[in-house]
Amino acid sequence: MYKGILFFLIACLGFTDAISDPGAGYNLSEEKGLYAKIADVPLNTGSGNIRLPELYQQTPVMLAFIFTRCTGICNPFLLHLKDNLESLGSKEKFKVLVVSFDPADSLSDLNKLAYRFGLQDNDQWIFATTPQISKLVNSAGFYPVWDSSRQQFDHDALLVGIDKEGLITKKLIGLRDVKSLNWMIRSIHDEFMLSYPLPRENMLFSCFSYDPVTGKKSPSFGLLFLVLPAILTIMLLVWFAYQSPKWRLKSAQEIPPAKN
């Protein structure tokens, strides 16, 4: 019973944590293959060889697929991710695993990449290659296509959220804003969000807006409409309080006799 009351009080305080915003660039295929298990593959990292489960069993993982020869989206993708994570000021609650899906990439290529982004000493970031890349990309639902005329892979910028059980809880495709990233961070920690809004247009007044820094919803313009009736009523009553003395019935004849 004490537990119940405590629970209730906490829930009352939790005014804010029901949903977050999908943010700009929401892509339908992000909802494919959710809650599937990520493949168990060996990883070669700068600090030795480990298997993927050893990683996610310690802390949840955000998995990004890139290749170092990429002249397209890979570099902006990583830079954007790095900037966004820095702006969130996120602490060591999860790892960012960057895996090359290009068999031609070696560990030293990846180390160079890490160096270029100034991430070589950042413990949160892990750069790795794997001998079983096709198993890994298939389990993540990531399908790059080799374009021999351009000598490049045709691919999405895919970020895969993996919780401590190795389940894919969320995917993000493309260069995404902080909102979306925060949504992913919460999902890889298995924080259940009861609901999320879909992208829509022309909507001026919605009830809540999402604060990416705290990851909480805050009342927005639309909520004013819920409070407005009370505000207007109170204003009317205040006006009455000032005006009504003038309306008072003065003479005794005007006031009907009270009947008892």
């Binding site: 019973m1 209730f8 809650y35």
Partner: peptide, 27 residues
């Protein structure tokens, strides 16, 4: 009423299976 509140609130559907990743997802 307070006791009823304390007993029933934790049983609210919002908290059910929140920490169990689902084995199937249906849209």
């Amino acid at each position: 009423l307070l006791i009823l509140l304390a007993i029933t609130i934790p049983k609210s559907p919002y908290f059910l299976f929140a920490d169990k990743p689902p084995s199937k997802l249906v849209f």
